[in-house]
Design a protein around this nucleic acid. Structure first.
Length: 583
RNA sequence: CGGGGAGUAGCGCAGCUUGGUUAGCGCGCAUGCUUUGGGAGCAUGAGGCCGCGGGUUCGAAUCCCGCCUCCCCGACCA
């Protein structure tokens, strides 16, 4: 491959585009890799297309390596498939919808589980046909409420999605493990720094699920890590370690106090500390009871749920939603309070809930023998020294409290801190959600039909381009890892003599050796401009044919390390070809 | 959907408060000469529906009304 900058469809920009915030967005636009076409929609220019293809090829290699077979499904999808799984409706505003001339509904595929399931159903019918892994690298369309960060979160993007089909759960586990291994190899080859966190499977249903997050300052996903180990998890997946139970004997009796105008934790703590009770109270000594209602899918009635947590912590709605999934959850409104007069807003205690047979779940830190100040179920009253396990017994625990920096790590190794990342891959055991919907069975050896089970495995291919740049750039530009760089070598000819002719000849010889070469053969462009462009474009190795040419020397530069050395012109092709092949 | 900001040449911006001849600057682009190891110099050019519609005025990029779009933060996000 030989690209000549004199004719390449490329224009680099000296200034950052006004709409870019994150480094990958700025650099990909400035370097002429992409251009914005519409909000969240980008055109891939020649250099960007090369990078995108390199990543896709690398993903392909590893997918083929675990027996995956590539197909390409349409992006334009008829409504009927998605009606069957109810996702025509469920997807809501996120999906791009359109109609043909006859008025028939279509959508631009946001994901393809339905099509893959039906594809397999149409072809394979025997247990002997399984397992099978199909994948595609396809454009996906999602009408995001707010596309952002350039390539990182667009409305049209490239994704590799793979699906495994197995006869039984053990097979699914094997398929899952194979994909996990392939993903590790893919992201390692891309040189990415990433973590694997356990994830909730969310609206996709299913059980085992892990996300691959590339760590970056500008990632939109928050996760937690431990100071003491490699532990990493989604905030939703953090299990709070329960402290040991404490003896109840000898603890003081619970006493109800008149606490006027103390509907919030802060007003309560202030009041208590002014009440001469002989000790200091903090928010952490109080038990906050938050009332929500939940509703199981398909049911009309809401059920009230009381959640008890230490008063210094807020409810994390995402954690709460994950904890009650698949039920939906909402806060109580005024009408709910009116309908349940024993719930005294601002003064709710455990006992009114328990006495009225409402479910009451508490944070795992609230164990037997812990002492709390909490609502006394009457206006302007709180109870002090209410002991868990003696004065009230919750129905169980729930992970709904916010996770904070400094909390103990669930694996017992250290404390948690938060980090940010970009979701680059997601694998999960989908199970039989879609095979049930479409009745995908395989005939077993006993002649009876057996329901197939699925795994689903995604990689954001175009997003990876941005993720790599986020992790691999400096103040001068991009630093492509060799595995995805648009070229192996950038040959820069600079000077007023025969340097450019020599540079082109060198480039041609390298290309003949199978090296991918970009040559800067532009005439009348000053060296400074060429060097600056070279650094912005970020090709791993640069060969400068310049002022030392008279002595038979060229300069070899390493973009990542910044090192440079002079080598003989005659030895350049062999040296560079070896460098590229060893990498 | 809530909050903030912005629409003026391919890109980045000024001009608007206080209306006034031909709308300006930098980058980029074209031509010529000079220059050639760190974003060169001089000269000459091309390039504009000042987001759209209406209004005020002798006169609107500038003032008023309405609309549209985009960007950022948040909500949302297989």
């Amino acid at each position: 491959m030989l690209l000549r900058m004199s004719t390449l469809f490329l224009r680099t920009l000296r200034e950052d585009p006004a709409d870019a915030e994150v480094p990958s967005h700025k650099l990909l636009v400035r370097g002429g890799f992409v251009r914005r076409a519409a909000p969240g929609v980008y055109t891939w220019l020649p250099l960007g297309k090369l990078v995108l293809d390199n990543i896709a090829d690398l993903v392909r290699e590893e997918m083929n390596g675990i027996g995956g077979q590539e197909v390409l499904l349409p992006a334009l999808l008829p409504r009927e498939y998605y009606e069957a799984s109810n996702r025509w409706t469920e997807y809501g505003d996120t999906v791009f919808r359109l109609q043909d001339r006859k008025g028939a509904d279509y959508m631009l595929g946001p994901t393809h589980e339905e099509l893959f399931t039906l594809l397999v159903k149409g072809e394979f019918t025997s247990y002997k046909d399984f397992p099978v892994v199909l994948y595609q690298i396809q454009e996906k369309f999602r009408d995001e409420a707010r596309p952002r960060a350039g390539i990182l979160r667009g409305r049209e993007f490239h994704m590799k999605d793979a699906y495994s089909f197995d006869i039984d759960d053990a097979g699914l586990q094997r398929s899952y493990d194979l994909h996990r291994g392939a993903y590790v190899r893919i992201f390692d080859r891309l040189g990415l720094k990433y973590v694997i966190v356990s994830a909730m499977s969310g609206s996709m249903g299913g059980s085992a699920s892990e996300e691959f997050l590339a760590e970056t300052e500008y990632g939109e996903d928050t996760f937690v890590r431990s100071t003491g180990s490699d532990y990493a998890a989604n905030v939703e997946a953090v299990r709070t370690p329960a402290p040991p139970h404490l003896p109840v004997e000898g603890l003081p009796e619970a006493v109800v106090h008149h606490t006027p105008d103390t509907p919030t934790i802060q007003t309560l703590v202030d009041f208590l500390n002014g009440a001469a009770l002989g000790r200091e109270f903090t928010a952490a000594d109080t038990l906050k009871n938050v009332l929500v209602k939940t509703r199981r899918p398909g049911e009309a009635a809401w059920e009230i749920l009381g959640i008890g947590l230490p008063g210094d912590r807020e409810v994390d709605m995402k954690r709460l939603e994950a904890a009650v999934y698949p039920a939906e959850v909402a806060l109580l409104d005024e009408a709910d309070f009116a309908a349940h007069p024993y719930l005294v807003k601002g003064y709710v205690g455990p006992n009114a809930l328990l006495a009225n047979k409402l479910r009451y779940l508490v944070d795992p830190r609230i164990v037997e023998g812990t002492v709390w100040t909490t609502g006394a179920d009457q206006h302007d009253h709180h109870v002090v020294d209410l002991v868990c396990g003696r004065d009230f017994t919750p129905d169980g625990t729930i992970e709904a409290a916010e996770v904070r920096e400094g909390d103990p790590s669930p694996d017992g190794t250290g404390t948690l801190y938060t980090a940010r990342g970009i979701e680059i891959g997601h694998i999960f055991q989908l199970g039989r959600k879609f095979t049930d919907t479409f009745g995908l069975d395989a005939l077993g050896p006993d002649g009876k039909p057996k329901r197939v089970t699925m795994g689903s495995y995604g990689i954001g291919v175009s997003r990876l381009v941005a993720a790599v740049v986020e992790q691999s750039h400096d103040d001068k530009g991009i630093v492509w890892p060799r595995s995805v760089a648009p070229a192996d070598v950038h040959v820069v000819g600079t000077g007023k003599g025969e340097q450019i002719e020599v540079a082109v000849r060198l480039a041609e010889e390298l290309a003949a050796q199978g090296v991918r070469v970009l040559v800067d053969d532009r005439k009348g462009v000053s060296p400074g401009v060429k060097f600056t462009d070279s650094e912005l474009l970020g090709i791993p190795t640069t060969v400068v044919v310049g002022k030392k040419l008279a002595e038979g020397l060229v300069e070899l530069r390493d973009r990542a390390g910044g090192g440079h050395s002079e080598i003989a012109l005659d030895a350049t092709v062999a040296t560079v070809a070896a460098l590229v092949k060893d990498a």
